[in-house]
């Protein structure tokens, strides 16, 4: 018996080594360990053994069974691993083949910059305002302190719809100051972007239609110090924390005192380079304290309320931001241009 068990074990292990497929392995398991298998056949003869031999052989038989089962299990795992490895190999792809994409559309570069600006102001409690582009001269000029005879009112500079020069295409976003003051009571914090129109022939830096962004704050106790602090903060958010600003006196009919804000050149940090045309500073926007005459014209008492306003051209900012060399590209809408952004 003992020899027989040893033989079964030896034969089975030898056969196992030859097995290379999982179905053959199953057949082998049945052959040795199945109900009609060889080990079972040997065990069936246990009854013929003496009482002394039986536990010894029984133990041996169990050992052989356990050993074979473990060997088959291990072989099965090994075969499974091999099969998986073969499959993975056969499924290998060239990862450098381009992916199948669906291109996202691009937002126009001008409006990307505008969105960034709006978000900055919204973060400071400003609301976004829009209004009409076909405008009354009263809103575009008179109520902004640009009286009859102001050069900007000439027909050589402004597009008109009526012979009496009373209806025009707005030349600035500033009339939105008036609209907002008419509609709303202070406190007011608004930013108003939009299309504006001036009679300029198209070239690399001019276009008869372009965009401005206007902003205004009206409240009790608003000071020029607030103007400086807020606009400097905007510049830092736009150009980085270490941005240095300076304010220069300037002139606008609808603000007094008026100023322009420069930022120190982000390229040369003030040393002077081609980006800042050697000046060390780049002009960013015009601003000032809302003129009391403008406030009075909107029924706001300048002895109680004060405010500041600013405005700038979006195109110039966006062109510099993306290093776009020619304004015409902005309105040409060539997809090879648009898809760069």
């Amino acid at each position: 018996m003992k020899e027989k068990l040893e033989l079964v074990r030896k034969e089975a292990l030898a056969a196992l080594a030859e097995v290379s497929a999982s179905d053959a392995l199953e057949a082998l398991r049945v052959k040795y360990l199945g109900k009609k298998g060889e080990l079972t056949a040997v065990l069936k003869q246990m009854g013929k053994l003496s009482a002394e031999e039986r536990p010894v052989i029984g133990q041996l038989a169990n050992e052989v069974r356990a050993k074979l089962e473990a060997a088959i299990e291990s072989r099965a795992q090994q075969l499974a691993n091999e099969a998986m490895a073969a499959r993975l190999l056969s499924e290998t792809v060239d990862v450098t083949i381009p992916g199948e994409t669906r291109k996202l559309g691009s937002q126009h570069p001008m409006y990307q910059v505008l969105d960034e600006l709006k978000d900055i102001f919204i973060g400071m409690g400003f609301e976004v305002v829009e209004d009409r582009e076909v405008e009354l001269a009263a809103y575009n000029f008179d109520r902004l302190n640009e009286k009859e005879g102001h050069p900007a009112r000439e027909w050589t500079d402004t597009f008109y719809f009526t012979e009496d020069s009373s209806i025009l295409l707005r030349t600035q976003t500033s009339p939105m100051q008036i609209h907002v003051m008419e509609r709303q009571k202070p406190p007011i914090r608004m930013v108003a972007p939009g299309r504006v129109y001036r009679k300029d022939e198209v070239d690399a830096t001019h276009s008869p239609m372009f965009h401005q962004v206007e902003g205004m704050v009206i409240d009790k106790g608003i000071t020029m110090a607030d103007l400086k602090g807020t606009l400097s903060e905007v510049a830092r958010q736009l150009y980085g924390e270490d941005t240095v600003t300076r304010f220069r006196p300037h002139h606008f009919p609808f603000t007094e005192p008026s100023c322009e804000m420069d930022i120190q050149c982000y390229k040369c940090h003030g040393a002077g380079c081609p980006t800042c045309k050697g000046e060390g500073w780049i002009e960013l926007l015009g601003a000032g304290m809302v003129h009391p005459t403008v406030l009075e014209g909107c029924g706001i008492d300048p002895d109680v309320y004060s405010g500041w306003a600013f405005g700038f051209g979006l195109e110039r900012l966006a062109l510099a931001y993306f290093k776009i060399s020619d304004l015409r590209l902005i309105f040409e809408n060539d997809v090879r241009f648009l898809e760069q952004f």
Partner: peptide, 8 residues
Amino acid sequence: IPDTLMRG
């Protein structure tokens, strides 16, 4: 002139 942020 100092730089301040708006109150109010």
